[in-house]
Design a protein around this nucleic acid. Sequence first.
RNA 1: GGCGUGUUCGUCUAGUGGCCCAGGACAUCGCCCUCUCAAGGCGAAGAUCACGGGUUCGAAUCCCGUACACGCUACCA
Length: 506
Amino acid sequence: MVVKRVRTRFAPSPTGYLHVGGLRTALYNYLFAKKMDGDFIIRIEDTDQTRKVEGAEKNLIRMLEWAGIIADESPERGGNFGPYVQSERLDIYKSYCDQLLEDNHAYYCFATSEELEENRQLQLKQGLQPKYNRKWLPEELGGSVPASEIRKKLDAGDPYVIRMKVPDYVSVWFEDIIRGPIEFDSATIDDQVLMKSDGFPTYHFASVIDDHLMEFTHIIRGEEWLPSMPKHLLLYEFFGWEPPKVAHLPLLLNPDRSKLSKRQGDVAVEDYVRKGYSSDAIINFVAMLGWNEGEGSEQEVYSMQDLIEKFSLERVGKAGAVFNVDKLNWLEKQYIKQRPAEKILGVIKPILAAELEQRVSLMPLEVITGDEYLKKVIELMRERVGFEHEFVTFSPYFFFEPDSYDEEAVKKRWTADTNELLREFTDILYALESFSAENIEVKLKEFVAPKGLKAAALIHPLRILASGVSFGPSLYHMLEVLGKETVLRRILKGIELITFSELPLE
RNA sequence: GGCGUGUUCGUCUAGUGGCCCAGGACAUCGCCCUCUCAAGGCGAAGAUCACGGGUUCGAAUCCCGUACACGCUACCA
Protein backbone atom coordinates (compact mmCIF):
# COMPACT_ATOMS: atom_id res chain seq x y z
CA MET A 1 0.00 0.00 0.00
CA VAL A 2 1.25 3.41 -0.93
CA VAL A 3 1.57 5.74 2.04
CA LYS A 4 0.12 9.13 1.30
CA ARG A 5 2.22 12.21 1.87
CA VAL A 6 1.10 13.82 5.11
CA ARG A 7 -0.79 17.09 4.68
CA THR A 8 -2.09 19.17 7.59
CA ARG A 9 -3.75 22.56 7.82
CA PHE A 10 -4.41 25.53 9.97
CA ALA A 11 -7.73 27.06 9.01
CA PRO A 12 -8.39 30.30 10.88
CA SER A 13 -11.18 32.73 10.18
CA PRO A 14 -9.98 36.24 9.54
CA THR A 15 -11.85 37.87 12.40
CA GLY A 16 -8.99 39.58 14.21
CA TYR A 17 -5.74 38.80 15.95
CA LEU A 18 -4.02 35.42 16.26
CA HIS A 19 -5.05 33.75 19.51
CA VAL A 20 -2.33 31.86 21.41
CA GLY A 21 -4.57 28.81 21.29
CA GLY A 22 -4.66 29.22 17.52
CA LEU A 23 -0.91 29.53 17.49
CA ARG A 24 -0.61 26.24 19.30
CA THR A 25 -3.02 24.54 16.92
CA ALA A 26 -1.03 25.86 13.98
CA LEU A 27 2.21 24.78 15.64
CA TYR A 28 1.08 21.22 16.26
CA ASN A 29 -0.15 20.95 12.69
CA TYR A 30 3.15 22.29 11.49
CA LEU A 31 5.27 20.09 13.75
CA PHE A 32 3.38 16.99 12.80
CA ALA A 33 3.61 17.71 9.08
CA LYS A 34 7.32 18.48 9.23
CA LYS A 35 8.03 15.51 11.44
CA MET A 36 6.35 13.30 8.85
CA ASP A 37 8.09 15.04 5.96
CA GLY A 38 4.76 16.38 4.83
CA ASP A 39 3.15 19.70 3.98
CA PHE A 40 1.56 22.33 6.17
CA ILE A 41 -1.13 24.48 4.59
CA ILE A 42 -2.97 27.64 5.61
CA ARG A 43 -6.57 28.00 4.49
CA ILE A 44 -8.69 31.03 5.28
CA GLU A 45 -12.24 30.32 6.43
CA ASP A 46 -14.11 33.51 5.65
CA THR A 47 -17.57 32.09 5.15
CA ASP A 48 -19.03 34.48 7.68
CA GLN A 49 -18.93 37.74 5.82
CA THR A 50 -20.31 39.68 8.77
CA ARG A 51 -17.39 38.82 11.01
CA LYS A 52 -14.67 39.37 8.45
CA VAL A 53 -12.06 41.90 9.56
CA GLU A 54 -9.99 43.84 7.07
CA GLY A 55 -6.31 42.95 7.24
CA ALA A 56 -6.84 40.02 9.57
CA GLU A 57 -5.79 37.42 7.02
CA LYS A 58 -2.47 39.13 6.37
CA ASN A 59 -1.89 39.63 10.07
CA LEU A 60 -2.58 35.98 10.85
CA ILE A 61 -0.04 34.82 8.29
CA ARG A 62 2.47 37.47 9.42
CA MET A 63 2.25 36.30 13.03
CA LEU A 64 2.71 32.67 12.07
CA GLU A 65 5.76 33.61 10.04
CA TRP A 66 7.10 35.57 12.99
CA ALA A 67 6.76 32.40 15.02
CA GLY A 68 8.66 30.44 12.40
CA ILE A 69 5.62 28.59 11.11
CA ILE A 70 5.91 28.81 7.37
CA ALA A 71 3.21 27.30 5.21
CA ASP A 72 4.01 25.24 2.16
CA GLU A 73 0.75 26.37 0.58
CA SER A 74 -1.34 29.39 1.52
CA PRO A 75 -3.35 32.22 -0.03
CA GLU A 76 -0.12 34.18 -0.39
CA ARG A 77 2.07 31.35 -1.54
CA GLY A 78 -0.41 29.51 -3.68
CA GLY A 79 -0.20 25.80 -4.43
CA ASN A 80 -1.87 23.07 -6.41
CA PHE A 81 -5.04 22.96 -4.35
CA GLY A 82 -6.18 26.59 -4.45
CA PRO A 83 -7.85 28.86 -4.03
CA TYR A 84 -6.98 28.81 -0.32
CA VAL A 85 -9.64 31.31 0.67
CA GLN A 86 -13.11 29.87 1.05
CA SER A 87 -14.98 32.88 -0.28
CA GLU A 88 -13.23 32.19 -3.60
CA ARG A 89 -14.49 28.61 -3.71
CA LEU A 90 -18.24 29.27 -3.64
CA ASP A 91 -18.97 27.51 -6.93
CA ILE A 92 -17.27 24.39 -5.62
CA TYR A 93 -19.48 24.23 -2.54
CA LYS A 94 -22.54 24.90 -4.67
CA SER A 95 -21.93 21.98 -6.97
CA TYR A 96 -21.27 19.57 -4.12
CA CYS A 97 -24.37 20.80 -2.39
CA ASP A 98 -26.41 20.18 -5.54
CA GLN A 99 -25.13 16.64 -5.53
CA LEU A 100 -26.30 16.15 -1.97
CA LEU A 101 -29.71 17.59 -2.86
CA GLU A 102 -29.92 15.23 -5.78
CA ASP A 103 -28.95 12.23 -3.66
CA ASN A 104 -31.56 13.14 -1.04
CA HIS A 105 -28.97 13.80 1.61
CA ALA A 106 -29.93 17.43 1.89
CA TYR A 107 -33.08 19.54 1.60
CA TYR A 108 -34.33 23.09 1.33
CA CYS A 109 -35.57 24.77 4.46
CA PHE A 110 -37.61 27.96 4.38
CA ALA A 111 -37.99 28.48 8.10
CA THR A 112 -37.34 32.00 9.31
CA SER A 113 -34.91 32.67 12.11
CA GLU A 114 -37.85 33.80 14.28
CA GLU A 115 -39.55 30.47 13.75
CA LEU A 116 -36.36 28.64 14.54
CA GLU A 117 -35.80 30.65 17.69
CA GLU A 118 -39.35 30.04 18.86
CA ASN A 119 -38.93 26.34 18.29
CA ARG A 120 -35.67 26.33 20.16
CA GLN A 121 -37.15 28.05 23.19
CA LEU A 122 -40.03 25.61 23.23
CA GLN A 123 -37.74 22.60 23.19
CA LEU A 124 -35.54 24.07 25.85
CA LYS A 125 -38.56 24.64 28.05
CA GLN A 126 -39.57 21.04 27.57
CA GLY A 127 -36.12 19.92 28.58
CA LEU A 128 -35.35 18.64 25.12
CA GLN A 129 -32.24 19.07 23.07
CA PRO A 130 -32.78 22.04 20.75
CA LYS A 131 -32.92 20.64 17.23
CA TYR A 132 -34.46 21.66 13.97
CA ASN A 133 -37.97 20.19 13.88
CA ARG A 134 -37.74 19.11 10.23
CA LYS A 135 -40.81 21.07 9.31
CA TRP A 136 -39.53 21.44 5.75
CA LEU A 137 -38.39 17.86 5.30
CA PRO A 138 -39.69 16.79 1.86
CA GLU A 139 -41.87 13.76 1.28
CA GLU A 140 -39.12 11.89 -0.57
CA LEU A 141 -36.98 12.13 2.55
CA GLY A 142 -39.68 10.91 4.87
CA GLY A 143 -41.11 14.31 5.66
CA SER A 144 -44.43 15.89 4.83
CA VAL A 145 -43.62 18.64 2.38
CA PRO A 146 -44.64 17.89 -1.22
CA ALA A 147 -42.13 18.66 -3.93
CA SER A 148 -44.58 21.06 -5.51
CA GLU A 149 -44.63 23.30 -2.49
CA ILE A 150 -40.85 23.48 -2.41
CA ARG A 151 -40.85 24.29 -6.12
CA LYS A 152 -43.37 27.05 -5.50
CA LYS A 153 -41.29 28.68 -2.72
CA LEU A 154 -38.19 28.41 -4.85
CA ASP A 155 -39.90 30.00 -7.85
CA ALA A 156 -41.24 32.76 -5.68
CA GLY A 157 -37.68 33.53 -4.71
CA ASP A 158 -38.20 32.99 -1.02
CA PRO A 159 -35.01 32.88 1.00
CA TYR A 160 -33.90 29.42 2.07
CA VAL A 161 -31.07 27.45 3.55
CA ILE A 162 -30.01 23.94 2.71
CA ARG A 163 -29.77 21.43 5.53
CA MET A 164 -28.24 18.01 5.68
CA LYS A 165 -30.57 15.10 6.38
CA VAL A 166 -29.13 13.19 9.30
CA PRO A 167 -30.12 9.52 9.05
CA ASP A 168 -32.22 8.19 11.90
CA TYR A 169 -31.11 5.48 14.26
CA VAL A 170 -27.48 5.20 13.33
CA SER A 171 -24.49 5.62 15.48
CA VAL A 172 -21.41 7.45 14.35
CA TRP A 173 -18.12 6.18 15.61
CA PHE A 174 -14.57 7.35 15.13
CA GLU A 175 -11.14 7.04 16.60
CA ASP A 176 -9.52 10.24 17.79
CA ILE A 177 -5.74 10.04 17.71
CA ILE A 178 -5.35 11.55 21.13
CA ARG A 179 -8.60 10.53 22.79
CA GLY A 180 -9.33 7.10 21.45
CA PRO A 181 -12.73 5.83 20.33
CA ILE A 182 -15.70 8.21 20.53
CA GLU A 183 -19.28 7.41 19.68
CA PHE A 184 -22.37 9.51 18.97
CA ASP A 185 -25.99 8.60 18.45
CA SER A 186 -27.49 10.19 15.33
CA ALA A 187 -30.52 11.21 17.39
CA THR A 188 -28.32 13.84 19.02
CA ILE A 189 -27.13 15.25 15.71
CA ASP A 190 -29.00 18.21 14.28
CA ASP A 191 -29.88 18.68 10.60
CA GLN A 192 -27.01 21.08 10.17
CA VAL A 193 -27.35 24.00 7.78
CA LEU A 194 -24.98 23.45 4.89
CA MET A 195 -25.70 26.50 2.78
CA LYS A 196 -26.78 29.78 4.34
CA SER A 197 -29.37 32.03 2.76
CA ASP A 198 -26.64 34.37 1.54
CA GLY A 199 -25.31 31.56 -0.63
CA PHE A 200 -22.26 30.98 1.55
CA PRO A 201 -21.56 27.56 3.01
CA THR A 202 -21.36 27.05 6.76
CA TYR A 203 -18.06 26.14 8.38
CA HIS A 204 -19.04 22.51 8.63
CA PHE A 205 -19.82 22.07 4.97
CA ALA A 206 -16.98 24.13 3.55
CA SER A 207 -14.35 22.55 5.73
CA VAL A 208 -15.38 19.01 4.88
CA ILE A 209 -15.36 19.74 1.16
CA ASP A 210 -12.04 21.53 1.33
CA ASP A 211 -10.38 19.06 3.65
CA HIS A 212 -11.17 16.37 1.16
CA LEU A 213 -10.34 18.28 -2.02
CA MET A 214 -7.12 19.59 -0.54
CA GLU A 215 -6.23 16.01 0.40
CA PHE A 216 -5.47 16.51 4.05
CA THR A 217 -4.46 13.33 5.77
CA HIS A 218 -4.77 14.59 9.34
CA ILE A 219 -7.06 17.16 10.90
CA ILE A 220 -5.62 18.60 14.10
CA ARG A 221 -7.87 21.18 15.73
CA GLY A 222 -9.26 22.39 19.04
CA GLU A 223 -11.44 20.34 21.34
CA GLU A 224 -14.37 22.67 20.69
CA TRP A 225 -14.84 20.88 17.37
CA LEU A 226 -15.24 17.46 18.86
CA PRO A 227 -19.07 17.60 19.06
CA SER A 228 -19.39 18.48 15.39
CA MET A 229 -17.25 15.57 14.26
CA PRO A 230 -20.23 13.24 13.61
CA LYS A 231 -21.83 15.76 11.23
CA HIS A 232 -18.61 15.91 9.30
CA LEU A 233 -18.28 12.15 9.23
CA LEU A 234 -21.81 11.83 7.88
CA LEU A 235 -20.92 14.21 5.06
CA TYR A 236 -17.87 12.15 4.17
CA GLU A 237 -20.14 9.14 4.05
CA PHE A 238 -22.69 10.90 1.81
CA PHE A 239 -19.95 11.65 -0.67
CA GLY A 240 -18.33 8.27 -0.32
CA TRP A 241 -15.05 9.85 0.72
CA GLU A 242 -12.54 8.44 3.12
CA PRO A 243 -12.32 10.76 6.13
CA PRO A 244 -8.92 11.99 7.32
CA LYS A 245 -7.51 11.01 10.69
CA VAL A 246 -8.44 13.46 13.41
CA ALA A 247 -6.91 14.71 16.63
CA HIS A 248 -8.71 17.09 18.96
CA LEU A 249 -6.43 19.23 21.09
CA PRO A 250 -7.20 20.16 24.69
CA LEU A 251 -8.10 23.79 25.40
CA LEU A 252 -5.85 26.49 26.77
CA LEU A 253 -7.18 27.89 30.03
CA ASN A 254 -7.17 31.01 32.20
CA PRO A 255 -5.65 30.73 35.68
CA ASP A 256 -9.18 30.01 36.97
CA ARG A 257 -9.47 27.15 34.47
CA SER A 258 -12.07 28.76 32.26
CA LYS A 259 -11.39 28.90 28.53
CA LEU A 260 -8.50 31.26 27.85
CA SER A 261 -9.91 34.70 27.27
CA LYS A 262 -9.20 38.38 27.26
CA ARG A 263 -9.93 40.02 30.57
CA GLN A 264 -7.75 37.55 32.44
CA GLY A 265 -4.61 38.39 30.54
CA ASP A 266 -3.36 38.60 27.02
CA VAL A 267 -4.62 36.13 24.46
CA ALA A 268 -3.28 37.59 21.26
CA VAL A 269 0.14 36.57 20.06
CA GLU A 270 0.59 40.23 19.15
CA ASP A 271 0.31 41.15 22.82
CA TYR A 272 3.23 38.95 23.70
CA VAL A 273 5.30 40.18 20.79
CA ARG A 274 4.67 43.73 21.92
CA LYS A 275 5.84 42.88 25.42
CA GLY A 276 9.10 41.64 24.03
CA TYR A 277 8.78 37.88 24.11
CA SER A 278 10.76 36.10 21.44
CA SER A 279 9.35 33.53 19.08
CA ASP A 280 11.80 30.98 20.52
CA ALA A 281 10.24 31.25 23.96
CA ILE A 282 6.65 31.52 22.79
CA ILE A 283 6.92 28.49 20.55
CA ASN A 284 8.75 26.46 23.17
CA PHE A 285 6.23 27.43 25.82
CA VAL A 286 3.12 26.87 23.79
CA ALA A 287 4.44 23.53 22.54
CA MET A 288 4.85 22.30 26.11
CA LEU A 289 1.27 23.25 26.96
CA GLY A 290 -0.23 19.90 26.23
CA TRP A 291 2.68 18.02 24.75
CA ASN A 292 5.76 16.46 26.28
CA GLU A 293 8.47 14.19 25.08
CA GLY A 294 7.84 11.59 27.77
CA GLU A 295 10.02 8.60 28.48
CA GLY A 296 11.67 10.26 31.41
CA SER A 297 12.91 13.27 29.49
CA GLU A 298 13.66 16.25 31.66
CA GLN A 299 14.39 18.65 28.84
CA GLU A 300 12.59 21.98 29.11
CA VAL A 301 14.18 24.04 26.38
CA TYR A 302 13.35 22.94 22.86
CA SER A 303 14.20 24.65 19.60
CA MET A 304 11.78 24.41 16.70
CA GLN A 305 14.12 21.80 15.22
CA ASP A 306 14.03 19.76 18.43
CA LEU A 307 10.26 19.94 18.41
CA ILE A 308 10.01 18.78 14.84
CA GLU A 309 12.24 15.82 15.57
CA LYS A 310 10.49 14.78 18.74
CA PHE A 311 6.85 15.72 18.27
CA SER A 312 4.14 13.11 18.14
CA LEU A 313 0.38 13.38 18.39
CA GLU A 314 0.20 10.36 20.66
CA ARG A 315 2.05 12.30 23.33
CA VAL A 316 -0.39 15.21 23.35
CA GLY A 317 -2.29 15.35 26.63
CA LYS A 318 -6.06 15.23 26.99
CA ALA A 319 -6.70 17.80 29.70
CA GLY A 320 -6.75 21.58 29.30
CA ALA A 321 -3.66 23.50 30.33
CA VAL A 322 -3.43 26.80 32.18
CA PHE A 323 -1.40 29.43 30.37
CA ASN A 324 1.15 30.25 33.06
CA VAL A 325 3.20 33.37 32.35
CA ASP A 326 5.83 32.63 35.01
CA LYS A 327 7.16 29.72 33.07
CA LEU A 328 7.11 31.72 29.84
CA ASN A 329 9.21 34.38 31.55
CA TRP A 330 11.69 31.78 32.71
CA LEU A 331 11.94 30.37 29.22
CA GLU A 332 12.52 33.82 27.75
CA LYS A 333 15.46 34.21 30.14
CA GLN A 334 16.87 30.87 29.13
CA TYR A 335 16.88 31.99 25.53
CA ILE A 336 18.41 35.37 26.29
CA LYS A 337 21.22 33.62 28.12
CA GLN A 338 22.09 31.46 25.14
CA ARG A 339 21.26 33.71 22.22
CA PRO A 340 24.22 34.87 20.09
CA ALA A 341 25.00 38.56 20.66
CA GLU A 342 24.69 39.27 16.95
CA LYS A 343 21.04 38.27 17.02
CA ILE A 344 20.32 40.42 20.04
CA LEU A 345 22.04 43.37 18.37
CA GLY A 346 19.49 43.36 15.60
CA VAL A 347 16.66 43.65 18.07
CA ILE A 348 18.07 46.26 20.40
CA LYS A 349 19.56 48.67 17.88
CA PRO A 350 16.22 50.07 16.75
CA ILE A 351 15.08 50.29 20.35
CA LEU A 352 18.18 52.21 21.28
CA ALA A 353 17.81 54.47 18.26
CA ALA A 354 14.28 55.30 19.36
CA GLU A 355 15.47 56.06 22.89
CA LEU A 356 18.19 58.31 21.54
CA GLU A 357 15.57 60.37 19.79
CA GLN A 358 13.82 60.95 23.09
CA ARG A 359 16.79 61.61 25.33
CA VAL A 360 20.17 63.27 25.01
CA SER A 361 23.23 61.17 25.67
CA LEU A 362 26.50 62.71 26.80
CA MET A 363 28.35 59.68 25.54
CA PRO A 364 29.89 59.45 22.08
CA LEU A 365 27.08 58.26 19.84
CA GLU A 366 29.26 56.37 17.40
CA VAL A 367 30.64 54.38 20.31
CA ILE A 368 27.47 53.51 22.17
CA THR A 369 25.57 52.55 19.04
CA GLY A 370 28.44 50.46 17.72
CA ASP A 371 28.45 46.68 17.71
CA GLU A 372 31.55 46.43 19.85
CA TYR A 373 30.11 48.48 22.69
CA LEU A 374 26.66 46.92 22.52
CA LYS A 375 28.09 43.43 22.59
CA LYS A 376 29.92 44.25 25.81
CA VAL A 377 26.69 45.56 27.30
CA ILE A 378 24.92 42.41 26.20
CA GLU A 379 27.47 40.14 27.84
CA LEU A 380 27.29 42.11 31.09
CA MET A 381 23.51 42.17 31.16
CA ARG A 382 22.28 38.98 29.55
CA GLU A 383 21.90 37.16 32.85
CA ARG A 384 20.09 40.08 34.36
CA VAL A 385 17.35 40.97 31.90
CA GLY A 386 14.01 39.34 31.25
CA PHE A 387 13.47 40.73 27.75
CA GLU A 388 15.74 41.90 24.99
CA HIS A 389 14.44 45.46 25.15
CA GLU A 390 15.68 45.58 28.71
CA PHE A 391 19.24 45.68 27.42
CA VAL A 392 18.32 49.30 26.76
CA THR A 393 15.63 50.07 29.31
CA PHE A 394 16.72 48.07 32.34
CA SER A 395 20.21 49.54 32.38
CA PRO A 396 19.87 52.95 30.69
CA TYR A 397 23.09 54.07 32.34
CA PHE A 398 25.03 52.38 29.57
CA PHE A 399 23.69 55.08 27.29
CA PHE A 400 22.47 57.95 29.41
CA GLU A 401 23.58 59.86 32.48
CA PRO A 402 21.77 58.80 35.63
CA ASP A 403 19.03 61.33 36.26
CA SER A 404 18.76 60.47 39.93
CA TYR A 405 20.45 58.37 42.57
CA ASP A 406 18.65 55.66 44.48
CA GLU A 407 17.90 57.43 47.75
CA GLU A 408 17.82 54.34 49.91
CA ALA A 409 21.13 53.17 48.51
CA VAL A 410 22.81 56.52 49.08
CA LYS A 411 21.58 56.58 52.63
CA LYS A 412 22.93 53.09 53.20
CA ARG A 413 26.31 53.49 51.50
CA TRP A 414 27.45 57.04 52.27
CA THR A 415 29.57 58.01 55.24
CA ALA A 416 31.11 61.35 56.19
CA ASP A 417 34.21 60.82 54.09
CA THR A 418 32.78 59.00 51.10
CA ASN A 419 32.89 62.06 48.91
CA GLU A 420 36.50 62.75 49.82
CA LEU A 421 37.47 59.16 49.09
CA LEU A 422 35.76 59.35 45.73
CA ARG A 423 37.55 62.58 44.92
CA GLU A 424 40.91 61.04 45.70
CA PHE A 425 40.12 57.89 43.79
CA THR A 426 39.08 59.95 40.80
CA ASP A 427 42.62 61.17 40.47
CA ILE A 428 43.86 57.61 40.45
CA LEU A 429 41.38 56.66 37.77
CA TYR A 430 42.31 59.72 35.79
CA ALA A 431 45.94 58.65 35.78
CA LEU A 432 45.09 55.13 34.72
CA GLU A 433 46.58 54.33 31.31
CA SER A 434 44.48 51.31 30.51
CA PHE A 435 40.96 51.64 31.87
CA SER A 436 40.37 47.91 32.24
CA ALA A 437 38.39 46.02 34.82
CA GLU A 438 41.52 44.36 36.15
CA ASN A 439 43.41 47.61 36.47
CA ILE A 440 40.52 49.37 38.14
CA GLU A 441 40.18 46.53 40.60
CA VAL A 442 43.89 46.54 41.43
CA LYS A 443 43.96 50.29 41.89
CA LEU A 444 40.87 50.30 44.04
CA LYS A 445 42.23 47.64 46.34
CA GLU A 446 45.59 49.40 46.58
CA PHE A 447 43.83 52.62 47.39
CA VAL A 448 41.57 51.22 50.04
CA ALA A 449 43.88 48.81 51.87
CA PRO A 450 46.23 51.28 53.64
CA LYS A 451 43.19 53.17 54.87
CA GLY A 452 41.90 50.05 56.58
CA LEU A 453 38.74 50.17 54.52
CA LYS A 454 36.94 47.40 52.75
CA ALA A 455 36.61 47.57 48.97
CA ALA A 456 32.87 47.78 49.44
CA ALA A 457 33.26 51.22 50.98
CA LEU A 458 34.10 52.50 47.52
CA ILE A 459 32.48 49.93 45.30
CA HIS A 460 28.93 50.77 46.26
CA PRO A 461 29.26 54.54 46.01
CA LEU A 462 31.00 54.17 42.67
CA ARG A 463 28.21 51.98 41.38
CA ILE A 464 25.57 54.42 42.52
CA LEU A 465 27.26 57.39 40.91
CA ALA A 466 28.03 55.57 37.69
CA SER A 467 24.61 53.98 37.29
CA GLY A 468 22.20 55.72 39.62
CA VAL A 469 21.10 52.39 41.05
CA SER A 470 22.37 49.89 43.58
CA PHE A 471 22.23 46.79 41.43
CA GLY A 472 23.82 45.64 38.22
CA PRO A 473 26.78 43.79 36.82
CA SER A 474 30.26 43.56 38.29
CA LEU A 475 31.31 47.10 39.14
CA TYR A 476 34.78 46.85 37.59
CA HIS A 477 33.49 45.50 34.31
CA MET A 478 30.73 48.02 34.24
CA LEU A 479 33.19 50.89 34.65
CA GLU A 480 35.42 49.47 31.97
CA VAL A 481 32.58 49.35 29.48
CA LEU A 482 31.39 52.86 30.35
CA GLY A 483 34.88 54.16 29.75
CA LYS A 484 37.11 56.51 31.60
CA GLU A 485 35.64 59.78 30.43
CA THR A 486 32.08 58.86 31.29
CA VAL A 487 32.99 57.37 34.63
CA LEU A 488 35.00 60.40 35.73
CA ARG A 489 32.28 62.77 34.57
CA ARG A 490 29.64 60.88 36.52
CA ILE A 491 31.67 60.67 39.72
CA LEU A 492 32.49 64.36 39.68
CA LYS A 493 28.89 65.27 38.98
CA GLY A 494 27.72 62.92 41.71
CA ILE A 495 29.86 64.20 44.50
CA GLU A 496 28.63 67.66 43.71
CA LEU A 497 25.04 66.58 44.05
CA ILE A 498 25.33 64.31 47.05
CA THR A 499 26.34 65.94 50.27
CA PHE A 500 26.67 63.76 53.32
CA SER A 501 25.61 66.51 55.71
CA GLU A 502 22.31 66.78 53.93
CA LEU A 503 21.59 63.20 54.70
CA PRO A 504 19.45 62.62 57.74
CA LEU A 505 21.59 61.21 60.53
CA GLU A 506 20.35 58.19 62.32
C1' G B 1 -31.68 20.43 30.07
C1' G B 2 -29.13 17.10 26.23
C1' C B 3 -24.57 15.35 24.12
C1' G B 4 -19.35 15.04 24.52
C1' U B 5 -14.61 15.45 26.85
C1' G B 6 -11.62 15.78 30.98
C1' U B 7 -9.74 15.23 36.44
C1' U B 8 -1.51 13.42 39.43
C1' C B 9 2.08 19.13 43.90
C1' G B 10 -0.37 26.49 43.20
C1' U B 11 0.99 25.86 37.57
C1' C B 12 3.12 22.71 33.29
C1' U B 13 3.84 17.67 33.61
C1' A B 14 6.44 12.18 34.24
C1' G B 15 3.94 7.84 35.16
C1' U B 16 0.27 2.64 30.52
C1' G B 17 -0.38 -3.35 37.19
C1' G B 18 4.82 -4.27 41.29
C1' C B 19 11.01 0.14 40.24
C1' C B 20 5.80 5.27 43.09
C1' C B 21 3.83 6.12 50.86
C1' A B 22 4.59 9.28 43.12
C1' G B 23 9.84 11.87 39.57
C1' G B 24 11.12 16.66 36.94
C1' A B 25 10.31 21.96 35.69
C1' C B 26 8.21 26.97 36.93
C1' A B 27 6.74 29.74 41.11
C1' U B 28 7.68 30.01 46.73
C1' C B 29 11.12 29.60 50.96
C1' G B 30 16.19 28.67 53.07
C1' C B 31 21.50 28.10 52.60
C1' C B 32 26.05 28.64 49.62
C1' C B 33 28.70 31.79 46.12
C1' U B 34 29.26 37.23 46.19
C1' C B 35 30.94 44.40 45.51
C1' U B 36 25.09 44.82 44.60
C1' C B 37 21.48 42.54 41.37
C1' A B 38 21.12 38.50 38.61
C1' A B 39 22.89 33.78 37.08
C1' G B 40 24.53 29.27 39.25
C1' G B 41 24.91 25.30 43.14
C1' C B 42 22.57 22.82 47.23
C1' G B 43 18.23 22.04 50.03
C1' A B 44 13.06 22.62 51.95
C1' A B 45 8.08 22.82 51.49
C1' G B 46 4.33 21.26 48.25
C1' A B 47 -0.15 15.69 45.31
C1' U B 48 -4.65 11.10 50.98
C1' C B 49 -2.89 10.41 42.28
C1' A B 50 -11.24 14.24 42.35
C1' C B 51 -14.47 10.80 45.32
C1' G B 52 -16.78 5.84 46.08
C1' G B 53 -16.97 0.91 44.79
C1' G B 54 -14.96 -3.24 42.33
C1' U B 55 -11.09 -6.64 39.47
C1' U B 56 -6.13 -8.36 41.24
C1' C B 57 -1.45 -11.39 45.60
C1' G B 58 -0.71 -6.12 44.20
C1' A B 59 -3.86 -0.03 41.02
C1' A B 60 -2.22 6.70 39.96
C1' U B 61 -2.30 2.91 36.20
C1' C B 62 -7.98 -1.87 34.39
C1' C B 63 -13.76 -1.75 35.10
C1' C B 64 -18.32 0.64 37.06
C1' G B 65 -20.65 4.66 39.44
C1' U B 66 -20.65 9.69 41.58
C1' A B 67 -18.94 14.63 41.83
C1' C B 68 -16.86 18.66 39.70
C1' A B 69 -14.86 21.35 35.56
C1' C B 70 -14.83 22.48 30.60
C1' G B 71 -16.64 22.31 25.52
C1' C B 72 -20.73 21.95 22.08
C1' U B 73 -25.91 22.51 21.62
C1' A B 74 -26.50 29.32 15.56
C1' C B 75 -28.14 30.70 8.52
C1' C B 76 -20.29 31.97 14.13
C1' A B 77 -16.13 29.68 13.33
